[in-house]
Design a protein around this nucleic acid. Structure first.
Length: 513
RNA sequence: GGCGGAGUAGCUCAGUCGGUAGAGCAGGGGAAUCAUAAUCCCUGUGUCGGGGGUUCAAGUCCCUCCUCCGCUACCA
């Protein structure tokens, strides 16, 4: 049976309008998932929406809408994003679904049974607008310094999770799982945070009602993080610990934005260990995008709309750019220049043109069928060997969420292949040594086949078109067909080649704005 | 404030156990003409943030200063 691979995006807060950050997280997960699928794993990719909390309750109320009707409506925006970006998730969890609420309550009961949750009292300065408590030194003149939101002294009964008791065990867990958090620098921050000592965590609220009710105490609603994080196992059928849960838990990796790393790397493993469940294997935190060098903010009005990006540049270029331009884990800058450069230079010139020049020579000179190769020369073998060595290198990078390095490695072979074309000059061989020309073109077609199989997780559209043009059947596109196992059959008729990664040309300026 | 990270070619960055620096892109020159005017080759004398120190030798270790960034608990 295939090895399981479970990967998750965070669940997105349904009140948000989908932006580049959501698209980026999901896109990376989609690429990782596609990669593992092609590599023969039994993959499960989960995404979804977080639909509870005071803000949602208020937003619905302001619109005179029932909260459930409201979330039903707005959670659709995230499904549309998934469709537009071509995300191939296996499940979409919503925290308002019965299966999720059941799981949260089951987990809660288990934590209570184990003495990990107790009833106490939460008191502090609370800002309704921010849905947050503030410390004395964070407020001034009755307002939160950071946000300016008015605060009021609030005391409410609250259930607490004994997080303070888990510091030592978390550190021990980090110690024995040195790859638990990536990138490494983030792991250091997490360790430092835990070493500083942990307080018990308030895990219920009585100030609003839109959430999962605490079992046997319906005045309380389970606080956001205990609710939200549980999605990763509720989607696997928890509390049923057989079935999907048995197969896919613990998750291979939770991919998150850097802003929510702590919840995933500290609270979540603590919750799970406290419940006697296994923590995930790894959490990877990626960075944020800036726009033309400037921080993205709603007030600046410079948000990057993923739908618009795809509409203008196309899905493959958008995916390629986001995964290639910046080391995954770092912050990155989007610029139109860089986007056009990657589209034209990398995709159209290097990759697309390599395929096009190879395939069109086959079409024009060899009757549009896979050439019959003669004996391979050293140069032929060298290029084929480069392609054959690629999968392991790419695997190494993808295993640690480094798609930029994976792509860089692939492009190194693309560059080799272009050099090979120039060195062999098949257009000259056409007159001097047609048999040799056929061999060269065979080596090229075979190299493009390997490249196209490997680029499927990143650019599913163009890669599929390339494989179509090489007449590679749908069931022969997995990584098990890389290298010698899947060699093209000489004589196989090929469809007429067409460019798959077109250059981006700016629309002529002048009219309109 | 505390803790951590970073400051290397115009831009983005690599630089393992210390031996006077590299890649990609951009720029300049040339070749070729199969191809999406794409490709290939050649071309980088940079005070390696400033200062001091250790060493035969430091971008690479130590000290110090400057600048930038991240984390510093219950908003996704």
């Amino acid at each position: 049976m295939a090895e399981p691979f479970y990967i998750t995006t965070p669940i997105y807060y349904v009140n948000d309008v989908p932006h580049i950050g959501h698209a980026y997280t999901s896109l990376a997960c989609d690429a990782f998932a596609r990669f593992q699928r092609l590599d023969g794993k039994d993959v499960r990719l989960l995404t979804g929406t977080d639909e509870h909390g005071q803000k949602v309750e208020k937003a619905a109320h302001d619109r005179g809408e029932d909260p459930q009707a409201y979330t039903d409506r707005v959670s659709g925006r995230f499904r549309h994003l998934a469709d537009a970006m071509g995300f191939a998730h296996d499940d979409f969890i919503r925290t308002t679904e019965p299966r999720h609420k059941d799981a949260v309550q089951a987990l809660w009961r288990r934590l209570v049974e184990r003495g990990e949750i107790y009833l106490g009292k939460y008191a502090g300065w609370y800002a309704v607008r921010d849905e947050a408590f503030y410390a004395e030194d964070e407020i001034q003149d009755g307002r939160a310094i950071a946000s300016g939101a008015p605060v009021a002294w609030v005391e409410e009964p609250s259930y607490f999770f004994r997080l303070s008791a888990w510091g030592g065990r978390l550190l021990a867990f980090y110690e024995t799982n040195p790859s638990f958090v990536g990138p490494e620098s983030r792991f250091n921050e997490v360790r430092r945070f835990v070493e500083g000592g942990l307080n018990d965590l308030s895990v219920s609220r009585t100030t609003f009602g839109w959430g999962v009710h605490v079992p046997d105490d319906p005045d309380h609603v389970v606080y956001v993080w205990l609710d939200a994080l549980t999605n990763y196992i509720s989607a696997l059928g928890y509390p049923d610990e057989g079935g999907l849960y048995a197969r896919f838990w613990p998750a291979d990796v939770h991919v998150v934005g850097k802003d929510i790393l702590r919840f995933h790397a500290v609270y979540w493993p603590a919750f799970l260990m406290a419940a006697g469940l296994e923590p995930p294997k790894r959490v990877f935190a990626h960075g944020w995008w800036t726009n033309e060098g400037r921080k993205i903010s709603k007030s600046l009005g410079n948000v990057i709309d993923p739908f618009a990006l795809v509409a203008e540049f196309g899905l493959d270029p958008t995916r390629y750019f986001l995964l290639r331009e910046v080391p995954f884990g770092n912050d990155g800058d989007y610029s139109r220049d860089a986007m056009v450069r990657r589209t034209n230079s990398d995709l159209a010139n290097d990759y697309g043109n390599l395929a096009q020049r190879s395939l069109s020579m086959i079409a024009k000179n060899l009757g549009g069928a896979v050439p019959e190769p003669g004996p391979f020369t050293e140069g032929d073998d060298a290029l084929l060997a480069r392609a054959a060595d690629l999968p392991d290198e790419v695997r190494r990078h993808m295993a640690v969420q480094a798609p930029h390095l994976a792509l860089e490695a692939i492009w190194a072979v693309i560059a080799d292949a272009n050099r090979y074309v120039d060195a062999q000059a098949p257009w000259k061989l056409r007159k001097t040594d047609p048999a040799r020309m056929a061999t060269v073109l065979y080596v090229l077609a075979e190299t493009v086949r390997n490249l196209a199989i490997l680029t499927q997780p990143f650019m599913p559209g163009g890669s599929a078109k390339l494989l179509d043009q090489l007449a590679v059947p749908d069931d022969a596109r997995g990584f098990d067909r890389l290298g010698a196992a899947g060699r093209l059959k000489p004589g196989t008729p090929l469809p007429a080649p067409r460019g798959v990664f077109p250059r981006f040309v700016e629309a002529p300026a002048g009219e309109g704005a």
